[in-house]
Design a protein around this nucleic acid. Sequence first.
RNA 1: GGGGCGUUAGCUCAGUCGGUAGAGCAGUUGGCUUUUAACCAAUUGGUCGUGCGUUCGAGUCGCACACGCCCCA
Length: 502
Amino acid sequence: MSDSQQPTGTADSSDENRLIAQRRDKLNAIRAQGNAFPNSFRRSDYAADIHASYADKEKEELAELAIAACVAGRIIRMRGPFIVIQDMTGQIQLYLNIKEFPEEKRAEIKSWDLGDIIGTRGHIFRTDKGELSIRVEEICLLTKSLRPLPDKHKGLTDTEVRYRQRYVDLIANEDARETFIIRSRIVSAIRNFMSEQRYMEVETPMMQVIPGGAVARPFITHHNSLDQDMYLRIAPELYLKRLVVGGFERVYELNRNFRNEGLSTRHNPEFTMLEFYQAYADYHDLMSLTEDMLRRIAYDVIGSGKITYQEIELDFDSPFTRMTLLEAILEKVDGVTLEQLEDHEQVSALAKSMGIAVKDKWGTGKIQLEIFEEKVEESLQQPTFITQYPTEVSPLARRNDDNPAISDRFELFIGGREIANGFSELNDSEDQAQRFKAQVAEKEAGDDEAMHFDQDYITALEYGMPPTAGEGIGIDRLVMLFTDSASIRDVLLFPHMRPVNG
RNA sequence: GGGGCGUUAGCUCAGUCGGUAGAGCAGUUGGCUUUUAACCAAUUGGUCGUGCGUUCGAGUCGCACACGCCCCA
C-alpha cells in the first residue's frame, strides 16, 4: 500500500523516450572519439550580417568575389544537401555536398540531428534558386542536442510549455524572439531618452523594512542574522524622493517591483517599473515628457508613430488627449451630471446602481474613481491623460492650490489600460505626516494594503525637498502595446507559474 | 474564490453512437543531392493529465484532483 506513495522514477528519467535515447547513444559515440563538448571554435560572421551585406549581389558576382565566412548556430532544418542554422541574429543556409567529405566524416554528419549546434567555414554563394548560402568546406559539431525540437513548421503552441520552458519557445518561435528583442530595444530607448534629459539612473533597496510608495500588499521575507522581517519593495518612490532631497534633482530607476496580488493577463507578482523624479517641475511638465518619451520609443522601436494593438490603431503622433477625471466620466457615461458626481449621497447611489459595492468609509472622491474605473477606463484606447484625481486616493500627491480635494496628479491610459501614474509631489512634511497617520488608521481598521508611517521619510522632507514631480510607467504593459501581446506573460521571459508538482 | 474551455506519439492535431489508438512533421533504414514546408520507398513510436466510479467493455459517460488558458469577483 505504501508503495503507491513512492515516486516511480526520477523526474530526469521519467520523460526519457526513444528519441532521447537514440541521441544519447550518439553522444556516447562522440565521447568515445574524444572531446564531445569542444570550445575552441570561433566564429567571425553572423547570419543577419551576411544577408545584409550581400543581399544585392548576384550569383556570378559572389562567385568572383569568393568571400569566406565562418558561422555557428543551431541546426533548425535539413533538406537534402542543405542545412539551415540559426544564430542570435537569424538564419543562414549551408550547402554541404556530403560526397565531398571522407567516409568517416560522412558518417558523423549523417548522425547529426535537428537541434545540434555546429560551427562551419566556407564561402558565400547564391544557389540556383537564389538563396544566399555558405558552401561548406569545414564543419564540426560543437554541442549535441539530446532533446527533439518542436514541429519545424508549426513551432511550439502549448502556452504552458512556452512559459515553463521559454528556451524551447525561443528556439522554435520567431515571434517570441521578436517580442523580447523589442522589449530590450524599448528599455534601451528609455535609458537613452532619460540620459539625454540629464536624468541619472540609480538603484535603491528592493528589500525594505517599511514597504512604501504605493497602495499594495507586499511579500514578506526574513533576514536571519538581524532576525528581522523585511518586505520586497512595492515601489521605490520614497527612496527616490530621498535622493531628490539629497540633491540628485533628476533620478530614475528602471527595475522590478513586487506585489502580493493575484495573477492575470495584466498582473505578474514581479513586474518592471520605470520610476522617475524631477525637481522644479510639475505634473504638466511630466505629461509633456511622457508624450515625448513614448513617441520616441515608437519611432526608435517600431519606426512609426502609429502602432496596432489588438486590431486597433494607436496614434502616438497626435497630441495626447487630456481631460479631468470628472470630464471623462461626464463624456463617457450617458445621463450623468456634474451635480450628481459632486454630491456624496447622489454619487453613492449612482455607483450602487452600476453594481459597485460602495463601502461606508469611502469618500466622494473614492466613489468617483470607482465609477471611472468601472465605466470609463476600458474605453480609453488612444493615449489619454486623465488629471485631477481626488486627494483622498492620492496619499503621496500634492494638493491642488485652488481645490484641496483634488491632487495635481494624472494617469495615462492607452489601449484601455493604465500605463503611467504621475503627480506633483507632496513636499510639505507636515501634510505628509498627517496623510501617513490617516493611512495607519486605515491599516489598523483592517486594510492590509494601507501604508506604513515612514518617519525617516518625514525627516528627509523636513530637510526640504524642492518642488518636484514624479511618475511611474509600467514597462511590461508598455511592451505589451508595442509587441501586440494580449497577456503580460507573453512579454515576461519567465512568467510566474504554479509549480507542476504541488 | 466562482464559471467556461482544454490536457491523446517528441511536436502540431484528428478520434463518429461507448466496441482492437490515427494523420502530418520529427525519428530509423535505403535512394537522390543547388533544395525552399525538398523529394521517393519502407518503417518504429501510445500509462489517451492523475485517481475513483458506471458498464460485459471507457480516449469517449459521471465525480474528484492537478496543471493551463479565458472570463468574472
